[in-house]
Design a protein around this nucleic acid. Structure first.
Lengths: 352, 352
DNA sequence: CTGTTAGCGCCTTCAA
DNA sequence: TTGAAGGCGCTAACAG
């Protein structure tokens, strides 16, 4: 009988091929290929050599089916990947995962539609060993759905009862920004925030509360001896071209003034708009940002920097630990709160 | 005999549970759960209802092992995820993949160390149905390693023989920028580029060639009637604080001058530095950027915009098609070249 | 230290 | 249109 010649010209080598080539069983090949526990060193070398020669790599899929672990960690991110914060945390999370042999899976959940799609089809289900939830606030219903998934969870920038989380104290940061302006002698201190998604994020809420809280405290402490500090809220509509709006809101009152901005991104747009209007910073207006955006330095922006990189690293490490653990690690949730830093640059100074 | 009571309190439902609940076999459940081909509509509904009630979702891992497809597409990206271009393309690729039911896997391959690690351990091996290679130039050796992987490949911003690719004509874009300055009447036109990784990327090389080529062409066409255009190359060291260097290089010559910048990012840093030095733009210096960076508009930067979003979309669509195909789709590689656009804003004008 | 024996959970012929 | 049986490629006991 002639051999059927439509045998494959070049198939990827299988584990059995490697076993045959190194004169051992597939079990031994399997053991040797991943760490070589309980295998004679000489055998390990022989197997590794054969595998390399044949260009064999074990199928992650088959391993996963057998072990129940997929060696993948997913990040559920509530913002476009184009945003500064998204980039920073994904980049850092990626590096931690890679160091530990995990792959990075990304799920973007920005608008209502994407959220609904994610939470109904749950593509991360049984598809990752742990999930990092970043940059957005879940509704209670969404939290419950995630809980049902039985995948270990780590929250980034959000505290959720009975789950591990890492974040900063947004209110304290905004209070520090406000305190700086007060200490410089400002008596007209505004707060500028995005009008995009009011009340959507806890961070946004806490930052504003930090600002008002600090002003309240100052008023209580100094009254009735000192003059009251005037306040004001400026909402920035989404999209470009808000320059005139900004000018209107700021210039409507007397100058000099000071303003605490919800984010550095908004603060930088404000600086550009003010420059275009001929308003001098910090002579006429003092500006403090929040975030520690990479570009803030180029703008000379005074800001409350959050350790985004470190937040991401800690979250990723927690996720790795949970991914390795049994799975029912609902015990021992860890809460990490990292400090913000006041970075003094050239957009703030005493009035007049 | 008593039933052993350490049976799990709540296990995720299995396919058999769904089968039992809907009175059919697992085969039918399997068919019903994905599309319901060759299954009576009523049966499909019954199965779907049972699955929903039990909260069952098929294991992607097990499906993958059986079908040979992992429903995942990997992006190999040669830059930090914090960069503008990385964010833009990941964001767009993500959306295309999701629409088509694919998950996004990210591999960052920035420095030499990460590259070596990736190309020796090949974590994407057997782990994605297609691979998009973006933002960096592979060596021949690396290309061959990827080829061996037998995973369909799509190149973004790089042409590779016998593989699909999508990109722009960098040289033509830079030439257009140069032509704009020439047509405005500039006679001193410099080129500014990053000193970070000279010769590392084809884009960088082609852009510079576009600039010199256009000047050569202009010289050939007008000589000997017109005065020669003077040129110059300014290299920007990586990191912040190059302001003084920039000023030195630019102000060393006579003003007004014009400069074509390799990237918008560099151009924006230049604008900030010039402003700090009191150099007026565009009165003293005209600046043209390259990329179509999101922030360029806020800076009023004239630029050569590349359709990053569209590039990513096309690359992702090609990848999806290849991922669905048999696998030996080495046939019919597609090459797509998208046009750049000159975006005229306020950093350019006639000298004097 | 190494081989043998069962699955992991799903999809896919093949029959009915 | 449905069910039964086998296998995808690997790992995990359990013997030896």
């Amino acid at each position: 009988v002639l051999v059927d010649d439509d045998s494959p010209r070049w198939v990827a080598a299988s584990m059995e091929d490697v076993a045959a080539a190194s004169g051992v069983s597939v079990s031994t090949v399997s053991r040797a290929l991943r760490g070589g526990t309980n295998v004679k060193t000489a055998t390990v070398e022989r197997v590794l050599e054969a595998a390399a020669r044949l260009g064999f790599v074990a199928s992650p899929t088959a391993s996963s089916l057998a072990t129940g672990k997929v060696k993948r960690i997913a990040v559920l991110i509530g913002a476009p990947l184009t945003e500064w914060f998204s980039g920073v945390i994904l980049d850092r999370i990626y590096r931690v995962l890679r160091e530990n042999g995990f792959d990075l899976l990304v799920y973007r959940v920005h608008d209502r539609e994407e959220r609904d799609a994610f939470f109904t089809s749950l593509p991360a289900r049984r598809n990752a060993d742990a999930l990092i939830v970043a940059s957005f606030t879940l509704t209670d219903a969404e939290q419950e759905v995630l809980g049902r998934m039985r995948t270990p969870l780590v929250y980034l920038s959000q505290h959720v009862t009975a789950h591990s989380s890492v974040g900063i104290d947004d209110a304290a940061g905004a209070a520090a920004a406000t305190r700086l302006l007060l200490s410089l002698g400002h008596t007209r201190i505004l707060y500028g925030r995005s009008a995009a998604q009011p009340g959507f994020s806890w961070s946004a809420r806490d930052r504003y509360l930090g600002y008002t809280g600090e002003l309240d405290a100052a008023a209580a402490a100094s009254a009735p001896v000192a003059a009251p500090v005037s306040r004001g809220l400026v909402e920035f509509p989404a999209g470009p071209g808000f320059g005139t709006l900004v000018a209107g809101a700021l210039l409507a009152g007397r100058l000099p003034a000071a303003i605490v901005m919800e984010t550095d991104e908004l603060a930088m747009q404000l600086l550009l708009a003010l420059a275009r209007q001929g308003v001098r910073v910090p002579e006429d207006v003092s500006v403090v940002g929040f975030d520690g955006h990479q570009q803030a330095e180029a703008f000379g922006l005074t800001t409350i920097a959050q350790p985004a990189d470190e937040l991401a690293r800690r979250a990723a490490e927690l996720a790795v630990a949970l991914a390795r653990g049994g799975g029912d690690e609902t015990a021992h949730p860890v809460t990490i709160e990292l400090p913000t830093t006041l970075v003094l640059r050239s957009t703030t100074r005493a009035p007049g």
